[in-house]
Design a protein around this nucleic acid. Structure first.
Lengths: 166, 166
DNA sequence: TATGAAATGTTATAATATAACAAAATTAAC
DNA sequence: GTTAATTTTGTTATATTATAACATTTCATA
């Protein structure tokens, strides 16, 4: 099992997360000759500002205006960056929240699932090949040809259990 | 494993599906002293008109106008009925599609997953206790207290594989 | 540096969902 | 049974999420 739950749920040097994510993104985009433009990079950085999924308009709000003109970045621009980052596997969409989160393992060809804390919103990504193959098997047994999956688990992260969340 | 995939993906007497669903709904609501009003029943029937998840505004469009006044049912009314039906476990929300589908096994206290055909939209519901317990275990291993899950699998149903979908 | 392709800017609008309050219907209390 | 309280529905407006359409700019490269 692969997971970033330790980072997602506990205090840590988050700047390193961000820097590592940006570094990985640069390398991956370079390899694929995909253009990680300043706007795309800023959107990625904004998403990586926390381990909580961010809605598209939260990203819009958190983006700093253009240095030259002082104008705010508009929704379509952000959505286009999101689309790019999704295609490159650098972020994931959390459907149950209409929100986006950075992928800690981009490039890995894994099918992952998400552990979303309903109290603090922090979200970890896990992969478990055994579960994946069981889902594939179960689908197959009904004659269904599985192509992709979306697994979102809601509950309480370790920190919020301590905090006495109901 | 429990599933309605045979009904979801193959031609059958669908009126029986609908009638059975309405019957179960009535019994369950009766037991819980929940009021299955005419509007709520109509929304449920509209959702059960197919085995494909229906968007809220598709439901609005498919609802017949009020018999007395001839006026169309408005979105908030439909959303309130949806909310009620979700609470009673009579329908499910498919987050990846922003759409709603009838539950073939209401009352069962199961955690299910959905097999969504990307070609025809038909969607089956499956439960597999083994997968559930593995997810629970995996979450636990990271200290996460799992409370609910959302598993949506996309692919091709048996019929659409035959049809030569790419 | 001209040229085409890709990315971004800009405005408008589609699609999904809910807030707020009024009216009607139903249930409970007397 | 009639009244009061509660729940449901009607109605209007608006919030939120997402995309269409076209103009402009930037970038790669020929």
């Amino acid at each position: 099992m692969l997971t970033n739950s330790r980072l997602a749920y506990h205090t840590h040097d988050h700047k390193r997360c961000i820097n590592a994510a940006l570094q990985r993104a640069k390398v991956l985009c370079d390899e694929k000759h995909a253009r990680l433009t300043p706007i795309r990079e800023t959107v990625l950085k904004t998403i990586w500002a926390s381990h909580q999924p961010l809605g598209a308009y939260e990203i819009v709000d958190n983006m700093t205006p253009k240095a030259q003109t002082g104008k705010r970045i508009q929704a379509p621009t952000v959505y286009r960056a999101i689309e790019f980052l999704l295609e490159q596997g650098l972020i994931h969409r959390i459907a149950s929240l209409n929100a986006y989160i950075g992928c800690p393992f981009p490039g890995n060809n894994h099918k992952d699932f998400f552990l979303i804390c309903r109290a603090c919103g922090s979200t970890a990504e896990c992969s478990n090949e055994q579960i994946n193959s069981m889902m594939l098997q179960t689908a197959e047994r009904t004659g269904f040809k599985m192509e992709s999956q979306m697994v979102e688990i809601s509950g309480l992260c370790p920190e919020c259990q301590q905090g006495g969340q109901p």
